[in-house]
Amino acid sequence: MAKGGVFCVEGQWHRDLNDQSSVLPTLELLQRLQAIRFIHKDVATREELAYFLDRWLLRQYADFKVGFFAMHGEPSKLCLTDRDTVELDEVADMMAARCEGKRLYFGSCSILRASDARLHDFLDATGAALICGYTRDIDWVESAAFETVALQILANGDRADAVERRMGSTAWAPLASYLGFRIVYANGRTWRPDARSRVPTQAAAV
């Protein structure tokens, strides 16, 4: 059976052109493990972001139901580079009414710290099934470890709440809580892992 597809747009993280930091190795690992299939595109401007999102939403890529936004972020804002940002509302306009059934993962610091109203407006505008991501500044290695699990569940889970069910009842719950992970569903419901959870001591060595 073909594995679920992840479409990733990655911002340009650093000013130094020699820096090779990227989520690409995480995606390649998951594909080699036959956990997902993926398409990865680099974006540095809002025009590039709009172009690749438009291509992703063509019918021929319908089985790539997870949209993964890998870039720096602030509440309600994506940072494509150190100089170019785009508001969450602008991203919604780029995908307006074309994301039915899509699951959108923002691997960006603090972007899910936006208000409930703004996130629900985003879902209403795009038609996506859910939006998820982090409510705090995150560490690269910790988030990468979390995403190796979250992305494959989003891509392959039959239920929209598959990540919630898995992360809320396993050893991943403390890390999800520590990262400030949050899910907002199109039906208006939101979910966070138990706030009392803490990252296990051994996780600090990851």
Rank of each mutant, 00 (worst) to 15 (best):
L123D: 00
L123H: 03
D124Y: 11
A125E: 13
T126H: 10
A129W: 00
L130Y: 00
I131F: 00
Y134H: 12
T135A: 05
T135L: 08
T135R: 12
R136F: 11
R136I: 04
I138Q: 03
I138N: 10
I138V: 15
D139H: 13
D139R: 09
W140E: 09
E142P: 00
S143I: 08
A145W: 02
A145H: 04
F146G: 01
E147Q: 09
E147L: 03
V149N: 11
V149G: 11
A150M: 11
A150G: 02
A150F: 06
L151F: 14
Q152R: 12
I153W: 12
I153T: 14
L154H: 03
A155R: 09
N156D: 08
G157H: 14
G157W: 04
R159P: 00
R159W: 04
D161E: 12
E164R: 11
E164L: 13
E164F: 04
R165F: 06
R165T: 13
R165C: 02
R166D: 10
M167Y: 08
G168Y: 06
G168W: 12
S169R: 14
W172R: 00
A173Y: 00
L175I: 13
S177M: 00
S177V: 05
Y178H: 15
Y178R: 13
R182G: 00
V184L: 11
